[in-house]
């Protein structure tokens, strides 16, 4: 029982980071109807940025959050402007495949310049553990999930209460109508891609505090994110947030109950069962 509760807590903690990642992905998906297969690789770049800032300049991963956000925002805008926007009018298959190319390029380029080795940031300002009635809480994990909640909250607020945020939601609802209302949809596209990527940058800094950093780290994270987004429902921010927590819990608790080797398979299985019953996802 004690162990199960521990798994549940760990599941929620990692799930909240998944939520943040998935919100970034669902924003891009919802606004542009583009599946960004390079999402996991953006995360990898975010993690490496934090790692190098820590190793070379002694900057704690938590302080590299703003820099990560800005850097990934620019990277996202750049990739949208020069690659994604070029295939937006093309056949649907090309839109699916193009980001695969970007993802393979980024992962292997990182392996080329930084070697495929695993890296780890040993000491951050928040390390150690808290004990709470028998449950062990890893401080960096708690900090990461708190950071994820705060960032997700900021995104909610931004989308609901600012002119630009409302414009993004309008484009997501109906592109043509938004265009008629005088919204510059092209600008909204690149902005959404930038914001979605910036969220991954933040998640990268948060994960860098306690997760292994290597060029191919994005692969599994990316695939899990797709499941979360599809589970939450097309372009639904709230859905992605909830689904992220569900997936985190299912992964850790399922891994504990069956076999840790199958924990990712359990997530995928749950996804398949859910879309069988509700093809539109939880909040779609």
């Amino acid at each position: 029982m004690q162990i199960l509760a521990q798994q549940l807590v760990d599941g929620v903690l990692i799930g909240l980071v998944y939520s943040l990642l998935a919100i970034g992905l669902t924003l891009i998906w919802g606004v542009m109807n583009v599946l960004n297969f390079a999402h996991g690789e953006f995360l990898m770049i975010g993690m490496f940025l934090s790692y190098w800032l820590y190793t070379l300049a002694g900057v704690d991963p938590l302080f590299s959050i703003p820099l990560n956000a800005v850097a990934l925002f620019l990277l996202g805008m750049f990739i949208y402007r020069f690659i994604i926007s070029k295939v937006m009018t093309g056949p649907p298959l090309a839109q699916l495949v193009v980001t695969f190319g970007v993802s393979i390029f980024l992962a292997n380029f990182a392996a080329f310049i930084w070697t495929p080795n695993y890296r780890f940031i040993g000491h951050t300002i928040f390390s150690g553990t808290w004990h709470l009635s028998g449950i062990i809480l890893s401080v960096p994990k708690v900090i990461s999930s708190v950071g994820s909640i705060l960032t997700s909250g900021a995104v909610f607020w931004f989308l609901r209460h600012t002119r630009t945020g409302k414009a993004i939601l309008a484009v997501e609802m109906d592109r043509e109508a938004a265009l008629i209302m005088g919204i510059n949809t092209e600008r909204i596209n690149s902005l959404s891609f930038g914001i979605g990527s910036a969220l991954v940058g933040v998640a990268g800094a948060l994960l860098a505090t306690h997760y292994y950093i290597y060029p191919f780290v994005g692969g599994t994270f990316g695939l899990i994110c797709f499941c979360i987004v599809a589970l939450g429902g097309f372009g639904s921010i709230e859905g992605a947030f909830i689904a992220g927590i569900i997936v985190g819990v299912v992964q850790t608790v399922g891994g504990y109950l069956f076999d840790p080797a199958y924990k990712v398979a359990i997530v995928f299985l749950m996804y398949l069962i859910t879309v069988w019953i509700r093809p539109q996802g939880l909040r779609g």
Partner: peptide
């Protein structure tokens, strides 16, 4: 790396 560039270029 080249393969990645190739995929991107084909799609574009």
């Amino acid at each position: 790396i080249i393969y990645g560039v190739l995929i991107t270029a084909i799609s574009m």
